[in-house]
Amino acid sequence: MITLGQYINNNSFGHRLDARVKILATVILSLLIFQARGWEIFLISSFVFIVCFICRLNFFSIWKALQPLVWFAVLLFALHLFFTDGTVLFTAPYLPVEITAEGLSRGLIIAWQFIALALCGVLLTMVTSPSDLVHGLTYLLGPLKYLRVPVQDIAVMVSMSLRFVPTLLEEYDRIKQAQIARGSAIETGRPARKIKSLAALIIPLMVSAFRRADDLTEAMEARGYARGPRTTLNQQHFGREEVFALLVLGVLLSLVLTSQFLRAPFP
């Protein structure tokens, strides 16, 4: 069975927290990650790991979610390591490659920033259900409606897209099996033939997606959907736990900002 996202509710502090607070925390942490230097890196990393621990997340699942991104982090590290000027630490024999102290530290920081940023995103999706995420975002983007941005309609569109991702993946699988049964070379042929037979997969999938979209529009209309404001089942709650979480986040923010203020040269 196809599963969407990595959210499994284990009713931890992080899972219970209001989605708006979690989104806000993710945004603030992401901004801090880009500003962090020296001991701030250690502080933010420890904070994120403590949050993972509090949320009782399985570290293997986190690693599995991060795995596809690790190669990109390695590439970022290598680029900075090999192409940054500075104090030479090592020169490769017979190769025009020099490793500098600045390159090493910069590469490590950039790779860390990237992984930490990805970890924040993974953390958010692991402790927040897709629907809570959409509702939280809808609330936070609420002020945009004064600029005539149809925030609620966008929220319905996003949740609908998320709802149909597994259905379309199942459909893709069904069409693929049907094409293989009829002798298609999707899995076994040469690359050129594979690409050619991909068209026989994509076109029916597109047709089916459009047909589904038509049926879905009708079903939504039949259930009284019309553009404009509507209420939802999800109730936003802002209690003691949310206040506590924001306070902790505030302390972290002040620590990092104070450190940066002290580090900055006085005019």
């Binding site: 259930r223 009284g224 019309a226 509507r230 089942l233 109730q235």
Partner: peptide
């Protein structure tokens, strides 16, 4: 499959009352 619009069962059932703008407590 083409009628269920919610991301979860309870959200789908709540879709109609939401369109009638009922308060969340009443929908729940």
């Amino acid at each position: 499959d083409n009628q269920i619009v919610g991301m979860t069962v309870e959200e789908d059932i709540a879709f109609g009352p939401g369109n009638l703008n009922l308060p969340p407590q009443e929908i729940r």
